[in-house]
Simulated scan of single mutants.
Amino acid sequence: MHQLLVFSDLDGTLLDHDTYDYGPALPAIARIKALGGLLILASSKTASEISPIHQELDLGDAPMIVENGAACVRASAIGTQDADYRAIRQVLRTLDAPFRGFGDMSVEEVSEQTGLSPDAAERARARQFSEPGLWHGDAHQRAGFLAALARHGITAREGGRFLTLSFGATKANQMQRMREQHAPCFTIALGDAPNDTEMIASADRGVVVRNDHSPQMPILPNEQHVLRTELPGPSGWCAAMFQLLAEWDDNEKGTASHG
């Protein structure tokens, strides 16, 4: 038997774009659990932000991929690992560049820049592995900044208004590590935005969840193994998962009967 691993983005995928509701996806989540699968939440959010959703969904000791793939942590490790973040902040202090990270901002400023409530902004500032921020310099300064970061092993990814610094791991990297830990396994990855494409393309089956508020997702290298939902958010998530879980369960039963 293969271990079932389901990797899911949050905003616009498992969570409704406008209401952040995951209710329509609950029947499929219950089915994943009934089949002995693990649901691994994978988001650009911090562990502190993901943890309440993880608890509400009763995902037990399933790990979480946090800060856009910068790390994979279990609920018990939230807040206990921040060496990467401290190292990034130390490098920033030596560079004295026109970059203003979340660590330079107050809770009120993060709330203003992101539209998050003060409580949510405080959780977003609870960084452990990466540092988002705003660039205030020109293009020439930016090129020098990125080159200096690279000499320290730090990469920068642009998403929306923010430039996010980390030591380079991605959602797809973390998914591969989980694959190795749980081999033999079968992976499903769901997402709605360009920063999910690598994870979706690396899975055995991928799902692009419709999100009319997100840039259009490109054709993927494994497109023949990708479902694109007609319904948005958790409704599309649920429909796609039931289809893929039925196929996977049938294949597993067929393998067992011929084994």
Results as ranks from 00 to 15, higher is better:
residue 192 D to C: 09
residue 185 C to F: 07
residue 149 L to Q: 08
residue 189 A to G: 10
residue 186 F to T: 15
residue 186 F to W: 12
residue 173 N to A: 13
residue 165 L to E: 03
residue 175 M to L: 15
residue 158 E to Q: 15
residue 165 L to P: 05
residue 157 R to T: 14
residue 145 F to W: 08
residue 179 R to G: 13
residue 153 G to V: 06
residue 176 Q to F: 12
residue 154 I to V: 14
residue 138 D to K: 10
residue 157 R to C: 08
residue 192 D to W: 04
residue 188 I to P: 02
residue 183 A to L: 08
residue 146 L to H: 08
residue 183 A to R: 11
residue 186 F to M: 11
residue 175 M to F: 05
residue 153 G to A: 11
residue 184 P to F: 03
residue 148 A to D: 10
residue 180 E to K: 12
residue 189 A to M: 03
residue 162 F to R: 00
residue 179 R to M: 14
residue 183 A to K: 09
residue 166 S to D: 02
residue 163 L to T: 11
residue 157 R to I: 08
residue 158 E to M: 13
residue 175 M to H: 04
residue 166 S to I: 07
residue 148 A to E: 10
residue 189 A to N: 09
residue 143 A to Q: 15
residue 183 A to S: 14
residue 142 R to D: 00
residue 180 E to P: 05
residue 173 N to C: 11
residue 166 S to R: 00
residue 149 L to S: 04
residue 143 A to N: 14
residue 141 Q to W: 02
residue 151 R to V: 06
residue 139 A to T: 08
residue 145 F to V: 05
residue 156 A to Y: 01
residue 154 I to N: 03
residue 163 L to D: 04
residue 190 L to W: 05
residue 175 M to S: 05
residue 139 A to F: 03
residue 148 A to M: 01
residue 167 F to W: 04
residue 180 E to Q: 15
residue 155 T to F: 01
residue 140 H to A: 14
residue 171 K to C: 02
residue 172 A to V: 06
residue 159 G to P: 11
residue 194 P to Y: 05
residue 168 G to M: 09
residue 181 Q to P: 00
residue 149 L to K: 09
residue 170 T to F: 00
residue 155 T to P: 04
residue 142 R to S: 03
residue 156 A to F: 05
residue 153 G to Q: 06
residue 190 L to F: 12
residue 171 K to I: 03
residue 177 R to F: 08
residue 158 E to D: 13
residue 163 L to H: 02
residue 164 T to H: 15
residue 188 I to Y: 00
residue 142 R to M: 09
residue 169 A to T: 14
residue 188 I to T: 07
residue 138 D to A: 06
residue 155 T to I: 13
residue 154 I to Y: 01
residue 150 A to H: 15
residue 148 A to K: 10
residue 153 G to I: 09
residue 177 R to L: 12
residue 156 A to L: 11
residue 183 A to E: 12
residue 167 F to E: 00
residue 170 T to L: 02
residue 189 A to L: 06
residue 172 A to R: 01
residue 190 L to V: 09
residue 158 E to R: 14
residue 144 G to H: 11
residue 155 T to A: 15
residue 177 R to C: 12
residue 176 Q to I: 15
residue 160 G to M: 10
residue 154 I to S: 01
residue 189 A to V: 09
residue 157 R to M: 14
residue 164 T to W: 05
residue 175 M to T: 06
residue 175 M to A: 14
residue 142 R to V: 00
residue 187 T to P: 02
residue 192 D to A: 08
residue 138 D to Y: 10
residue 182 H to Y: 15
residue 146 L to M: 12
residue 161 R to F: 11
residue 187 T to I: 08
residue 184 P to S: 08
residue 161 R to K: 14
residue 192 D to S: 11
residue 194 P to D: 09
residue 154 I to Q: 01
residue 160 G to P: 06
residue 166 S to N: 03
